[in-house]
Computed example of a mutant assay.
Amino acid sequence: MIRLTKQRRSEERTAVPGGALGMLRIIDRLGDGAHARELAAQAALDPSTVSRAVAALVADGLVARQPDPHDGRATTLAVTPAGRAALADALDWYQRLVDRALADWTPDEIAAFDRQLGRFTEAMQDALTTTSFTTTGNLEVAR
């Protein structure tokens, strides 16, 4: 569902290239003056992947490179006004999608879903931080 949702958003809201929305959000969260190395660490991505994504965001006018005032050899990243507008539009699109999906859910159902999704997210984070893990068959149950 995540892949299909991202694909649909990219088709309907073309201002932010597919796969770049997360990067744009992180740059926005880091604020003006973000360095590419910070972005790579926050995104948990290889610097070459980040470099390509940033280049696309710069080419689309969503992010600007600025000279680092503390290091003349480096540049920092900042979301442009067009980038902020595109980000707001994309996030609004996701909000309206979730609102439509949950339109006939009761408040209790939404609260229960929220609790269980939070629990699942934490469990996945814990599982990914272990050095090794074995399959227990729970994935088949989830499917």
Rank of each mutant, 00 (worst) to 15 (best):
P47L: 08
G18V: 05
D68E: 04
T75P: 00
D46W: 06
R3G: 02
E38R: 10
A101D: 10
A41C: 04
R8T: 04
R9V: 02
S10Q: 02
L128A: 12
G18M: 07
A112R: 13
A43L: 14
T80R: 01
T49C: 05
T76P: 00
T135H: 09
R29D: 09
R119P: 02
L39R: 02
K6T: 02
D28V: 02
L128D: 10
F120K: 07
M23N: 01
D126N: 12
G137L: 04
A88P: 10
D126W: 10
P17Y: 00
G137D: 08
A55R: 05
A56S: 13
D68G: 03
L45Y: 06
G31K: 06
D99W: 06
A59G: 12
Q42W: 08
A36G: 10
A53I: 02
T14K: 15
A78D: 04
G31E: 06
T49D: 03
H70W: 09
V50W: 00
L45I: 03
T136V: 12
Q116K: 09
A142Y: 05
A74S: 13
Q42E: 15
S48M: 08
T75H: 15
A20F: 03
A64M: 08
L39T: 07
H70R: 13
I110R: 14
R119T: 13
T14Q: 11
D46R: 08
Q66I: 09
T75Q: 14
T14C: 01
G19Q: 01
Q42R: 15
W93K: 00
A111N: 08
V16F: 02
R84M: 06
A55S: 10
I110K: 14
T121K: 13
T136R: 12
G19F: 00
A64T: 10
E109P: 02
I27R: 00
A85D: 12
A15Q: 14
G61A: 03
L4K: 05
A111P: 01
P47W: 05
G18A: 13
D108N: 12
A85L: 11
A85T: 12
A82G: 08
G61Y: 01
D126A: 13
T76A: 05
T106L: 10
G118M: 09
L87I: 06
A64C: 05
S48H: 09
A142H: 04
L77F: 07
R29F: 14
D108Q: 15
D71T: 06
D60A: 15
D104N: 13
R115C: 05
L62Q: 02
D126Y: 09
L4I: 04
R84Q: 13
I26L: 12
L91T: 06
A20T: 09
D108Y: 08
T121I: 12
P67V: 07
P67C: 11
D28L: 04
L77Q: 04
A41Y: 03
P69G: 03
L91F: 06
G61V: 03
E122T: 14
I110H: 10
P67D: 14
K6F: 11
A15M: 05
N138Q: 12
A44V: 06
A59F: 03
D92R: 15
M1D: 10
A127Y: 03
R37K: 14
I2M: 10
P17R: 00
W93D: 02
H70G: 11
A90W: 01
G31N: 06
T106D: 08
L24V: 01
Y94K: 02
F133S: 13
L4G: 10
T130V: 14
L39G: 01
Q125T: 15
M1Q: 09
Q116S: 08
Q66P: 00
S51M: 01
F120N: 13
